[in-house]
Simulated scan of single mutants.
Amino acid sequence: MSETGDRPAMPRGKTRFRSEVVDFWRFIRHPHPAARLPGRAAASGLVADWWPGISPGRLLAWAALLWALNLFALGPVAVAAAGLGGVTHRLDPANIPWLTAVIWAPLVEELLFRYGLRRPKQALWLIPAMLPVVLWGPKVWTGLLLAAFVILACWGVRQRAEPLKAWDTTWRRYYLRHFGLVFHLVALTFAAVHLTNFVYAKTPYWLLPLLVLPQWLTGLVLGWMRVRRGIGAAMLLHSAFNAGPILMIWLIMRWAPTAAG
């Protein structure tokens, strides 16, 4: 059982991708730290939370859906807003930090933004503790610090004989009652942080939300994945999602540098 208190477990078995999309749509309308998706581990909290429990095909299906929605729907809106506001991206296509995007960012951002959705007590210490890791980026000492935080987080969800002992039920009920607000604020905050990826030139403030619409949608899906499958699955999806555009940019730079320019 998670700290947030799960609803009764769903029947075990595999789900179709279409059923998961429907579940996601229902979830974001009425977020709740509900039971895991069918087929998820029913072992200790550590196994259920960190073991991804998702097939490569299903992982790529979710990544492909996000790529398609961002490429054909939200991406053009963000590009148009950038053009209107004179905004440029900080990323240098010729020098892409792919290790940071595919490994570091998914691990750090999922721990910072979405780990606490099902572990609110741990979030009270983990979020402020992660600030040095976020501010100083990937370095040897921040990597060691991050590894220590992961170990502490895993230790905190080890299986216990009395998992709810000393739990403040009043605080727990309050969190459950406001979980929907917390979930959507986390997605908005995740999107807002990505505004730092741009360089601005007297850009109107009302254009700023349009620039990070893709990150907002991605944050919603990653939040659903974290709650319904676990933090391990959310990290893997985040990594796969980041890898797609990086691979596309690399291929363009390699095979069509004139088009990239």
Rank of each mutant, 00 (worst) to 15 (best):
F190C: 06
I231W: 02
A153L: 06
M10K: 13
L117C: 01
T169S: 12
H89E: 15
W255C: 09
A187W: 00
I151T: 09
W171Y: 05
A148I: 01
R119Y: 09
P8R: 06
A259K: 07
G5D: 06
V21I: 15
R26C: 14
G86R: 08
A68W: 07
W167P: 00
L124W: 14
L217H: 03
L146A: 09
H194Y: 07
G230S: 06
I103S: 08
A73N: 09
T170V: 11
P132N: 13
P132S: 11
L251I: 13
G13V: 10
D168K: 06
A260D: 12
Y175G: 04
W171E: 10
V150D: 05
P97W: 09
P97N: 14
Y205K: 13
P214N: 10
F113E: 03
L135E: 12
N70A: 10
G261R: 15
W171M: 10
M130C: 13
M10P: 12
G57A: 08
M248P: 04
L251W: 13
L117N: 02
A41E: 07
G86Q: 11
H178C: 15
G143N: 07
L195Y: 01
W224K: 02
P245K: 04
N242Y: 03
L208M: 13
L208G: 02
I231A: 08
I231V: 15
T218E: 12
L211G: 03
M130W: 04
R172A: 12
A240Y: 07
P38Y: 07
R226G: 02
V150N: 04
G53A: 05
K121M: 10
M10S: 14
P132A: 11
P8H: 05
G137K: 10
E3H: 13
Y205F: 14
H238R: 13
V87N: 02
L164N: 11
V21C: 12
L131S: 11
A147G: 15
P163L: 12
A161D: 08
W141K: 06
L237R: 00
Y200A: 08
L37F: 07
K121E: 13
M1W: 05
L208A: 08
V227W: 00
L217S: 01
I28Y: 03
I54A: 10
W167N: 08
R177T: 14
G230R: 04
T196D: 12
T170C: 07
V21L: 15
A123I: 05
S19Q: 11
R114Y: 04
F27W: 07
W155L: 10
P11N: 05
V47H: 03
T170Y: 08
Y174W: 11
Y200H: 09
S44H: 02
Q215P: 09
A129G: 06
G53C: 06
A42R: 11
W224F: 11
V21F: 02
T196F: 13
V221Y: 02
